[in-house]
Design a protein around this nucleic acid. Structure first.
Length: 205
DNA sequence: GGTGTGATCGTA
DNA sequence: ACGATCACACCA
């Protein structure tokens, strides 16, 4: 039987690739929030979407650099956090290289550690399945908001780890959710069968 | 299981 | 005006 391997911090080169490569590679990776004074929270990524910037009409960076999306134009491995629908925060992992604004939206995850804190942060979640199922839910469970825009995933307080669980050999794949533009691109990836994957009946193929 | 709708505000 | 959304009310 295989014991748990030690978690290894994901290095810069992991993120400094095309978002279409990074996105599926992020499946089954760990996100660990280690804020000083707060209990640790850890989740396993089960759903992501790639956004490619200048050539992607659905990307926040499509029309160029603004104050809001500036983080995506910076170095890979940082976190782009944005506010939407007047009430929700969502988080992206910045990819590629400075000047090339690409990112991977963190859409859903499986709760791993710190379930109590996540439940406190998300009182509306009726079951643990609702803690991290959806981009805004995940951000809320991790305690992410405006102050975390630009943070370095190699430094924290949020960090990315590989604990030896490989991405699915055959990941689920579909068009991006809530995106009308560029619907021919299937730039959403997820762990098949995982109950924490968002969307009606985990739509996709 | 699925569909429809209101909430709410920064950004362009 | 319009969202890289969620929660809740329904209906099936």
């Amino acid at each position: 039987m295989s014991g748990p391997r030690r978690a290894r911090l994901l290095a810069r080169p992991f993120y400094a690739r095309d978002a279409l490569e990074v996105a599926p590679a992020l499946l089954n990776k760990l996100l660990v929030m280690d804020a000083p004074g707060a209990p640790r929270v850890a989740v396993r990524i089960v759903e992501v979407e790639a956004y490619r910037g200048a050539d992607d009409p659905a990307s926040h960076a499509y029309k160029g650099r603004t104050a809001r999306n500036a983080t995506m134009f910076g170095p890979a491995g940082h976190l782009y956090v944005y506010f939407t629908y007047g009430m929700h925060w969502c988080a992206n992992v910045v990819c590629a290289s400075p000047g090339i604004a690409q990112g991977v939206l963190l859409r859903a995850a499986a709760p791993v550690e710190g379930l109590d804190v996540m439940r406190e942060r998300r009182p509306k979640a009726r079951t643990d399945r609702d803690l991290c199922r959806g981009p805004a839910r995940l951000a809320q469970a991790l305690g992410l908001h405006r102050a975390h825009d630009g943070l370095d995933l190699l430094r924290g307080p949020l960090r990315g780890y590989d604990d030896g669980v490989a991405p699915p050999a055959r990941p689920g794949r579909s068009a991006r959710i809530g995106v009308t533009a560029a619907h021919d691109h299937r730039w959403r990836w997820y762990v098949p069968g995982d109950p924490n994957v968002s969307g009606p009946a985990n739509r996709g193929r």
